[in-house]
Nucleic acid binder design. Structure first.
Lengths: 206, 206
DNA sequence: TAGATTAGCTTACAGCTGTACGCTCAATGC
DNA sequence: GCATTGAGCGTACAGCTGTAAGCTAATCTA
């Protein structure tokens, strides 16, 4: 078994296309501003050969969103393992998040930008990825802090919203400014956690 | 006083351009995807006449962001007046916000999209508009709830983040779904407010 | 080994883009 | 009244775009 020479070469070229697209992303360049020809050029491929791998740019983009979401979840899972060894869950999660942001900025860019983007399919794909985070987090809070489902869900949404918003801001920052931002984010997350707990108590005591 | 005929005509055409651009915005169409020629066409103007009013599309876009921010602030100020007549500040603010969203969706679209957009000038302009909200809100909380400046600021940022995030989600929703979203948002905002208060007390009691 | 498959190439084309240039002619200032 | 100004227009062009068509040559299949 194992892929034949042909399939291997094809996979390699496909990767070159995906990587080329990721590499062209920057603060000044969004996915939707990339042209098929630009990506093909960067991947050292004739424009028309692009079609051997993707139906159009849209299909490439969705592939990238899926891949990006996967990367993100893998990294955060590692962070959670680190948190289990002790320490503030919030702090460690934020630190992990910032590290991911630092090492994979372009994975982030496509998620952040296409979330408010112009294609319904893209928005849905990004929302699906974010939903993973929210429901994982909600489930965790519901179990560990004995939160009501509705409250746990609202809390998780708020936390993820604040984290992603901070992530967007951090993308264009120098390391020093990021530290301030991270501290501020931790403070906001604690607000939400504390507030959710207070609301929970109020619900129970009547 | 009183513009001459010439200046009046010019202003009218300029408005036609701005309005044409706003009208072309939709869930499927972002400002950066508009071409100069498209806007000129929609405004019933020759493409080259565009330059009599704006240096380029960028300048048009910045004008739109400024105008949008102004509209937004005016509407929210009216909401605040309504809140002074009594009732939950949070609830009334959220309702006002949803009304604005309903009547000026495209003002919102450009702010939301260009916030994570590809042009630094745009991002800065949007951030400036959002900063208005944050600092107004922080000032208000600092005074009325006797919050420490740092805490008040973090709280205000969190509130605005949650509201804008909900706004983005609400844009593509039907009225019924928006209601659910609004209720959920109110809950999250209360979490933040309650949590901020708890943190404040902790600071004072030691 | 002979024939079928297919990744990648070259060439080609129509459609769109931004914008340079120069004209017209109504409003303006003197 | 006459010269100046300037908003809007038409024409033109080079550069980009997505993609259709058909070829080549390496790999796969039987």
């Amino acid at each position: 078994m194992g892929m034949g020479i042909r399939a291997q070469q094809k996979e390699k070229t496909r990767r070159a296309l995906v990587d080329a697209a990721f590499n062209q992303l920057s603060a000044e360049r969004s996915f939707s501003s990339l042209s098929l020809r630009e990506v093909a050029r960067e991947a050292n491929i004739a424009p028309t050969s692009f079609y051997r791998h993707f139906k159009d740019m849209n299909e490439l983009g969705l592939t990238m969103v899926d891949e990006g979401g996967l990367t993100l979840r893998q990294m955060m899972r590692k962070g959670r393992q680190r948190a289990e060894a002790g320490g503030s869950v919030i702090r460690i999660s934020v630190d992990t998040f910032m590290e991911v942001l630092d090492s994979n900025p372009n994975v982030f860019r496509i998620l952040l930008h296409e979330r408010s983007g112009t294609s319904a399919a893209f928005r849905a794909a990004v929302e699906r990825e974010i939903e993973h985070f929210i429901s994982e987090l909600a489930h965790y809070t519901e179990a560990s802090a004995n939160r009501s489902p509705v409250l746990a869900r609202a809390q998780a949404e708020a936390l993820v919203t604040l984290v992603f918003n901070a992530g967007a801001a951090a993308l264009d920052m120098k390391r020093a400014d990021r530290k301030v931002l991270a501290d501020n984010l931790v403070m906001q997350l604690r607000m939400v956690a504390t507030g959710a707990e207070a609301l929970q108590r109020k619900l129970e005591h009547r």
